[in-house]
Design a protein around this nucleic acid. Sequence first.
DNA 1: CCTTGACTTGGAGTGGACTTAAAGAAGTAT
DNA 2: ATACTTCTTTAAGTCCACTCCAAGTCAAGG
Lengths: 134, 134
Amino acid sequence: MTIRQVSEKYGISQDTLRYYEKMGMIPPVTRTAGGIRDYQESDLGWVELAICLRNAGMSVEAMVEYVRLHRQGDSTMRARLELLQKQRQAIVERRERIDHALERLDHKIHIYEEAVENGELTWGQNCSKENGGK
Amino acid sequence: MTIRQVSEKYGISQDTLRYYEKMGMIPPVTRTAGGIRDYQESDLGWVELAICLRNAGMSVEAMVEYVRLHRQGDSTMRARLELLQKQRQAIVERRERIDHALERLDHKIHIYEEAVENGELTWGQNCSKENGGK
DNA sequence: CCTTGACTTGGAGTGGACTTAAAGAAGTAT
DNA sequence: ATACTTCTTTAAGTCCACTCCAAGTCAAGG
């Protein structure tokens, strides 16, 4: 699979794919005799993982470290496990913050919906209180 | 409340608080006669809202727009409601991506835990398959 | 052989969100 | 009053994660 096809498959730019590889976020991609990237299944697996974890806000740096350990073989398994657990924790915290914001936003939206329905004017003095929830 | 106290209360730097205000992410903060920031309850409400929504990944730009509308009064209520709904949607999508990554991460962690328990070596050939679990 | 177009590289540029620096004014302790 | 701390401002700097560019290479069609 060419870089163009991979780029289209995952909706990510070719530049970004090259960037991921250059940084070491994924191991070196398989090449043709002429040196052109020819993504194999395993390469795609890494690309998918990278996209997935980046989507969750994991840093490039952490991914690079994970790949570095991975390439050093079985002896780094424990270290990799710890890295993943730590990242998991960070992601869980991110989700908690998102949930918190969503609750707040939903509350606000609810108030606005009522206000808009009731003629947009029944709110006046409350307006200054803004963000009163909780 | 001084900027220092607010900074400590929310674990955010004084610089960031001034930055938020300068950008218009929060309305102008109350000042003393000498021009020094003296945060009132309502100012704190805005700060909290800003921190909360930034934590969820909402952009500075969107918050600025919201505040801008808010300061224009009741006539912008519908526009604000739409803005909030749109942001809500974006945040929900962010959470979905996070959930997806968490599932994947948990699967991976599970595999690593087993491998580490079983003596760190029972994995060998599987290693190349990496990320196989959908 | 020559052109076209997709690929290669290294390196510079961009955008968002802070963060730091520099210079000066105001409130507080002695 | 003098010194110290904490505030003020504007402007420049930093960090991250891309994103774009210039110059060059390679395979296929005419």
